[in-house]
C-alpha cells in the first residue's frame, strides 16, 4: 500500500513555510505573553512545542487552550496563535518559580493560499530529504467552515489515518486544536475524530471556532 512507502510521488508532501525559535522568561503565577512577527503574507498554520529546559526534555506541545479549573499541580501551560502579522505565545507558569521558556514553532500554508515564501535555511538544510524518515503523504487538504454542527469528511481508507488540524477563532486568530473535552458533546466540544472511513470536525462553540484547516494523510 502507498502508506507503507517512505515517500510517494503519487501524493504531495507537506513542507514547512516558516520556523521560529527563541526563549523568554515566564513569570511565576501569571501569564507571560510574547508576540513575534512572522513575516509571511498570510496567516500561517502554526504548531510548536516548548520546554523549560534548553535540551527540550521534557517537552510538550503547544495548544490554544489551558486547563483553568485547577492549578494545584505545578506546571506550565502554553498556548499559541497566529494572525496575519504575528505569532503570539502565552505561557501560564504555575511551577512555583520564574522559568525560562524555550519554544520552537513551525508553520504550514493553508490550502487556499498561494503565496511565495522564502527558502527555509537551517542547520538541517543539507538534510531536506532523508531516506531514514517517512514523509507524510497528503490524501486531502482543505478547510471547512464550522458553526453549530459538525462536518464530516469521508476518506474511505479502511484504517484510521493521521490527521493534522488547526482552528480559526471568531476573532480571526489561528492555532492548533484546543484541548479536547471528551466524551464529545454536540455543539460544544472542539475536537477532531476519525474512524476507518471518515474524519469529523466537531463544532467548537465553547471556543468560538469558525473554521478548521486540515490535512488528511494516507499514513496511519
Amino acid at each position: 500500500m502507498d502508506k507503507d512507502f517512505q515517500y510517494s510521488t503519487d501524493f504531495v508532501a507537506d513542507f514547512i513555510v516558516g520556523m521560529w525559535e527563541d526563549s523568554f522568561l515566564a513569570v511565576n503565577g501569571t501569564t507571560t505573553s510574547i508576540v513575534v512577527p512572522h513575516g509571511l503574507s498570510f496567516t500561517p498554520l502554526v504548531k510548536g512545542n516548548f520546554s523549560s529546559s534548553s535540551d527540550f526534555f521534557p517537552s510538550n506541545e503547544m495548544s490554544t487552550s489551558v486547563i483553568l479549573y485547577s492549578f494545584s499541580v505545578p506546571g506550565m501551560q502554553v498556548s499559541i496563535y497566529a494572525d496575519g502579522v504575528n505569532i503570539s505565545i502565552n505561557a501560564y507558569n504555575f511551577t512555583g518559580s520564574n522559568k525560562t521558556l524555550y519554544w520552537r514553532v513551525y508553520a504550514l500554508m493553508p490550502d487556499d493560499i498561494d503565496a511565495d515564501v522564502g527558502d527555509i535555511t537551517t542547520p538541517r538544510s543539507d538534510m531536506l530529504f532523508d531516506t531514514d524518515n517517512l514523509y507524510l503523504k497528503v490524501l486531502d487538504r482543505g478547510h471547512v467552515p464550522i458553526s453549530t454542527t459538525s462536518v464530516v469528511i469521508p476518506h474511505n481508507l479502511g484504517y484510521v489515518p493521521y490527521v493534522e488540524a488547526w482552528v480559526t477563532f471568531s476573532i480571526g486568530t489561528v492555532g492548533p486544536i484546543p484541548l479536547a473535552f471528551l466524551p464529545i458533546y454536540p455543539n460544544s466540544g472542539a475536537a477532531v475524530t476519525a474512524d476507518e472511513s471518515t474524519v469529523t470536525f466537531h463544532a467548537g462553540s465553547i471556543f468560538g471556532i469558525t473554521r478548521y484547516d486540515y490535512r488528511i494523510y494516507i499514513d496511519g
Binding site: 508532501a13 513542507f15 514547512i16 520556523m19 527558502d119 543539507d126 531536506l128 532523508d130 507524510l136 499514513d219
Partner: peptide
C-alpha cells in the same frame, strides 16, 4: 543517503 532535496523542509516522521 540523501537521494533528493527540496527547497523546503518536509515534515519528516521518524517513528510511530
Amino acid at each position: 543517503r540523501y537521494l533528493q532535496n527540496t527547497d523546503f523542509i518536509l515534515l519528516a516522521s521518524d517513528d510511530v
